[in-house]
């Protein structure tokens, strides 16, 4: 049986987009010769040429700023920033330039660029290579943010991001690149802003995204053995997020938990909880709970990192509070 690996799905999305549209170009550190730190861009330079697939120097501020200018002048650039932690150097181009231009220039233009990057821990990569910073970007009007959790989403969301006329940050997860699924019959482009129900359930809703969904699934399996049915929503898209889908699920289960690997404080879960406490107040039979990382930098030591990252035990404990 043929299988589809997450990093191959990312690669295929870019290859298909580049074949379909000659204005799509790809640049970033080590994307051409080395094929990307996680192998997601392997072979693309051979397929599409050194003009369209380029290695850059280690100059994040310049290359992301360059993507903005390229997007204003007729290209659809995809830039790979190999770790989301390195986006700090590129924040002006993302926040002050790409995000603002459409509004600030009176809708004369849009900025059709994609920033592909990856976040997350589990590999002992430490405080500067493990962060989950998606909430930073979701907080800025003008940006879209997606976090694909599986190979089909990695393909479908990246294709959607490339054709999207606005700047999209596609955040993959380093622990997911080697994951695989049976080759799907078809790989549709997935709409940005739509969540997916991964598991239907009647007793509680867990909203999550990215690699944290694995721990959520493990917890749900344990709860199922006790006769507790968890509905799992994969948010897929962080900005915009699928408020309607979360509300609909809450209306079925009346209990809501949000799980993410990012630091819990001021995170994506806080926004979802606040909105649901407002528009979903009548549906709630319990307080809304969040499970995320504690308010500290990501540790290196395995023992510490295991405890730092949300896991099935944290989620189970929160579920029991929710159902108590």
């Amino acid at each position: 049986m043929t299988e589809l690996r997450y990093n191959h799905a990312v690669n295929r999305a870019m290859a298909d987009a580049m074949a379909a549209d000659p204005t799509v170009v790809l640049f970033g550190e080590d994307v051409a010769g080395a094929g990307g730190v996680y192998g997601a861009t392997r072979g693309l330079r051979d397929k599409f040429g050194a003009d369209r697939v380029r290695d850059t120097p280690i100059s994040e501020a310049a290359i992301v700023g360059m993507a903005v200018g390229a997007a204003l002048s007729g290209l659809k650039p995809i830039v790979e920033i190999s770790f989301i932690d390195f986006m700090t150097f590129a924040m002006d181009a993302v926040v002050n330039q790409a995000a603002k231009m459409r509004t600030m220039f009176g809708a004369q233009c849009s900025v059709p660029m994609v920033l592909r990057t990856q976040h997350g821990g589990g590999a002992g990569s430490g405080p500067q290579h493990s962060q989950c910073l998606e909430a930073w970007f979701a907080h800025v009007p003008g940006l879209k943010v997606v976090c694909p959790a599986d190979p089909a989403s990695a393909y479908g969301l990246l294709r959607a991001a490339i054709v999207d006329p606005d700047p999209v940050i596609v955040i993959e997860h380093k622990a997911l690149y080697a994951t695989r699924v049976p080759e799907p019959d078809s790989l549709p482009i997935l709409p940005i802003g739509k969540a997916a129900v991964l598991r239907p359930g009647r007793d509680l809703t867990i909203v999550s995204y990215g690699a944290a969904l694995r721990a959520v699934s493990d917890a749900a399996a344990t709860l199922a053995k006790e006769g507790i049915e968890t509905e799992i929503l994969d948010l897929r898209s962080i900005q915009p997020w699928d408020e309607a889908a979360v509300l609909a699920s809450l209306a079925r289960t009346h209990r809501l938990m949000i799980v993410h690997e990012a630091v819990e404080a001021f995170g994506v879960g806080a926004e979802i909880a606040a909105r649901m406490a407002d528009i979903g107040f009548d549906e709630l039979d319990a307080p809304i709970l969040r499970v995320g990382a504690p308010f500290m930098p990501s540790p290196v030591a395995k023992a510490l990192e295991r405890r730092y990252m949300p896991n099935a035990d944290n989620i189970l404990a929160a579920a029991r509070r929710l159902l108590a």
Binding site: V25, A61, A62, A67, A70, A71, S73, L75
Partner: peptide, 22 residues
Amino acid sequence: ANGIVAAGMPIALGSALAHQIL
């Protein structure tokens, strides 16, 4: 125009890249 000092420079580079590639 640009409210951030130096921010226009890489944008010009990207525009030049588009001129070159296209």
